[in-house]
Write a protein that binds this DNA or RNA. Structure first.
Lengths: 140, 140
DNA sequence: TTTGTAAATGATAATCATTATCAATAAGTA
DNA sequence: TACTTATTGATAATGATTATCATTTACAAA
């Protein structure tokens, strides 16, 4: 999915297309790394100088609401985001370079069901992420 | 493991046993809910009035270092902790009451190996949590 | 095209969590 | 009991996030 498709999604949901949003969307959509709001701000401002940090927060909020991005939790903190353009997939983050890889999680659903039965919980959400070194960083 | 055993662990690792640490350890060790630093502070101060918030942060740091507690990530933010007294297990959090259940994750290791082979990553850490409603909250 | 209206914006201030600093205190060993 | 040094709590500093508000701008309707 392209940045334009994201903007179309925003429009379809009653949100307006602005230069600020264009810059944020373009930045997040094409990033292969999880970005914090401030990082998005720094990069997006190269495309649109007048952009305000607050607008970045607000735009990320909407993109998350539309499931166009997903939150990335890191061992030491939160508030980083990555495009969710690959459907429902899980993340694998390189601790050295920050590169993000996606992988399928068919087995996760099976495991979830087993746990639900054992614990009596109704499971509505899951959260699975791996951390390590990507092939490149391993070689160094 | 009891609060005393945790304090013994601290001592073994060259840290001193203080009233402040006693209060923090007692609070976190027996909690069935993930607690934020401020929550720990509020509860522990009932046991030891003079406790400072900064000491809570520092004590949690050490407990994490000794793997006595683990970080709990929530869909909307981080910095909450729960006892890691159950060995390496995964968490299941009730979104309504905050109750935490543990479950085994044998299947996770198998999945991890498959992903490592497919992606070429060296996987050093994983992070798996479920969210939902516990049996009690479901019934309401 | 032009115009009207409400959504969206950026600047600023306010709030909240976390970290750094430092003199005073207390743990634990000799 | 005394001494050394880790630990403490108070305070200040920092950094991230949220609230406020007057101004601007998207865009639908005329």
């Amino acid at each position: 999915m392209s940045a334009n498709a994201w903007l179309a999604q925003l429009h379809e949901n009653g949100y307006r297309i602005t230069k600020a949003r264009g810059a944020v969307v373009e930045t997040v959509e094409k990033s292969t790394h999880a970005l914090t709001p401030v990082e998005v701000y720094d990069i997006a401002r190269k495309k649109y100088r007048a952009l305000g940090l607050v607008t970045v927060y607000r735009t990320l909020e909407k993109l998350e609401e539309l499931h166009l991005i997903q939150r990335v939790h890191q061992p030491m903190g939160c508030q980083a985001f990555i495009s969710a353009g690959h459907g429902h997939q899980h993340l694998l983050l390189c601790k050295n370079c920050g590169q993000v890889a996606f992988f399928e999680g068919d087995d996760v659903d099976a495991l979830t069901k087993v746990v639900a039965k054992k614990t009596g919980y109704l499971i509505t959400e899951h959260w699975f992420q791996l951390f390590g070194l990507c092939a490149k960083c391993r070689a160094k």
